[in-house]
Computed example of a mutant assay.
Amino acid sequence: MTTNDLPKAGFKLAKIAVGGVVLIGLGMATMAYAKNKPLHTVEKVELDKYLGVWYEVARKPMYFQNKCDRDVSATYTLNENGNIGVDNRCYSKDGQLNESVGEAFIKNAPFNTKLKVSFLPESVRWLPVGRGDYWVLKIDDAYQTVLVGEPRRRYLWVLSRSAQPDQAVVKEYLDYAQSIGYDIGDVIYTKQTQK
């Protein structure tokens, strides 16, 4: 390289730097735009296919799962009243089983894509307070992987029928979450010791 080439090299580096800044800016603008758009659910959830055991494979951090270190699962059953029984389980670092039993109320039957979940004591669950949103945002036709969130995009779960799912599928679901406005920079990948 000669001294005549230095200005050319500096110009090329400046172009690359500007291009990188523009790409980062476009990515951030796209995410901000997606975050301001209304959040859409899947078209319909067939409850009989959705019921059963799901393993958590990824989630955004949330205070009510602070004790969960590994082996997080959710089991959904149909109650006699037509609501969904929810049994969430996980193990803490010291190996203690933590369990939360609640009930999910379908808010948009017959589509079944928007639910409200309550973990209040059973005797007062009928009160329409203390309920969290549970929206089905993406699910495959075979009901093997699901993305669940809520309209403010603070909470997010990727659930699978397998405790050890294909990581390419998990990435696909997280990429989709990002495309609809979720910040996935702080996602926790759940440790699952079962096969």
Rank of each mutant, 00 (worst) to 15 (best):
Y76T: 09
G82S: 07
P151M: 05
I84M: 15
G149P: 07
D87E: 11
G149D: 06
W135H: 13
K93G: 10
W126D: 13
S123T: 04
E122H: 12
W126Q: 13
P128H: 07
K116G: 06
S118Q: 02
L127Y: 10
Q96T: 14
V129G: 08
V86N: 09
P151K: 13
G149M: 05
N83Q: 12
Y143G: 05
G95L: 03
C90K: 03
S123G: 11
D94M: 06
L78R: 11
N88Y: 01
D140Y: 12
P128G: 13
L127V: 08
P121T: 12
S123R: 09
P128Q: 08
L115G: 06
G82Q: 05
G132A: 12
Y91Q: 12
Y143W: 04
D87C: 10
C90W: 00
T113S: 04
D94A: 06
S100A: 15
N81W: 05
D141Q: 15
F105S: 05
V117S: 10
T113G: 03
N112H: 15
D140C: 11
S118E: 01
P151N: 07
F111K: 15
G132W: 07
I84E: 01
K93A: 15
Y134Q: 08
Y143F: 03
T77Y: 00
K93F: 00
E122C: 03
G85D: 01
T77D: 14
K107D: 11
D140L: 10
